[in-house]
Design a protein around this nucleic acid. Sequence first.
DNA 1: CTGAATCCCATTAGATACTG
DNA 2: CAGTATCTAATGGGATTCAG
Lengths: 129, 129
Amino acid sequence: MSDYFRNTVMKKLSNGDFDCTKEFTVSMFSGKHKLLILWILINDGPQGFSYFMKNLKGISKKVLSNQLNELMADQIVSKREYLTGKVKHTEYQLTDIGETLIPIIVALNDWGENRLKQVTLVKIFNNDL
Amino acid sequence: MSDYFRNTVMKKLSNGDFDCTKEFTVSMFSGKHKLLILWILINDGPQGFSYFMKNLKGISKKVLSNQLNELMADQIVSKREYLTGKVKHTEYQLTDIGETLIPIIVALNDWGENRLKQVTLVKIFNNDL
DNA sequence: CTGAATCCCATTAGATACTG
DNA sequence: CAGTATCTAATGGGATTCAG
């Protein structure tokens, strides 16, 4: 998604401008579906392309492909390919680097769940629902 | 930036579709500058509009305004206004909810710093630099 | 089945001008 | 100083097509 942003950060790094830690960090996660992709890998283990297509409702092949490629470029996810007859299958999994993200993603998800609970409770209380 | 995405999530919630925790969480952070804004608030304390303009290089007033408004809508940040003569000043600060994010943001930033270190070391080693 | 390439439209960012 | 409104340019997403 944020190819442009990612490239900008990469260029900065190439130019020796290391004063962009935050931008770098953001560039790792920008992408509407990356958190979901990682969440799936964390909870369901290694999965193929179609598994993500089924479980990320509303995502297109192109976008999924892009996000997976970015995650691979960032060495957070790796891919394995194999053939069943003439049919290509893939398996994506977290790299060692990717696994260092697990506690953060879990914390993020916990935060989101709690926050969502608060939000919906307030809504119900106010009869906005 | 992701007004559209945010609105989509909010609509889902209003429709009683609570099966979107991840989308909700993502919607809290999507925004190229939000992490930076929060980082500034965490480290430098409450700040005015112009402080962000100075420290988020390349951001426009409009985008900053949008991101701050979204953070306020999500109750992560709050605003205080006051006048000095006829000149309006503002002060943005983390809310109680926003403060619950501190450990996560710190962890995220640590991760990014370490990762960046690895990346640049590899680059130097390979003479890509 | 996986996924890259293309075309097209929706959305977002930036610049500028204007207000309290 | 702190924004909002508006207009335009740049970017991203979706559907389709094609190939390995």
